[in-house]
Amino acid sequence: MELGQVLALFAAALSAFLAGMGSAKGVGLAGQTNAGVSTENPEVNSKLLVLQLLPGTQGIYGFLVAVIILINTGVLGGTMKAVSVMQGLALIAAVLPVAVVGYFSAIDQAKVASSGMLMTGEHPDMSGKAITMTVMVETYAVLALLASFLMVMAIQV
């Protein structure tokens, strides 16, 4: 295996693991709050589950970019294509937005989700607002995904 190919795999790994880690941390944090609020007010639990799930999407975005790299480099086709060192480095650059923004936005989103859960626990009819507040953070993860996606698609292997 050549260095370029290793770099391409590294790019895919970076994208999947950083964003995935952020989401895991975020969903975990939100889950703890969910358990706490549900102890006090079990009836809102189903509303809180939605909030808990929201920081999970970043991990999906990271995974998605990783899969596209694997498809483009032929890994999922069975035989990996030749990748130059420069292409490999370019792929690493391309995944940075989704990896880094994904990691941090998932955690920040989880914090908003947690606060939203406390609000929903007190005022169950405000769950819609809590969700809207939480989704605000997600915008930047979506934009990062698009940036990474466009860059990855521009690197023809």
Binding site: T139, L145, F149
Partner: peptide, 23 residues
């Protein structure tokens, strides 16, 4: 306006994950 890019991003995610499942 940029916010509507999420329509693309979310749609893409469904398709790609579906594809991975099938692979």
């Amino acid at each position: 306006l940029l916010s509507y890019m999420r329509l693309f991003g979310m749609g893409l995610a469904t398709g790609v994950i579906g594809m991975v499942i099938n692979i």
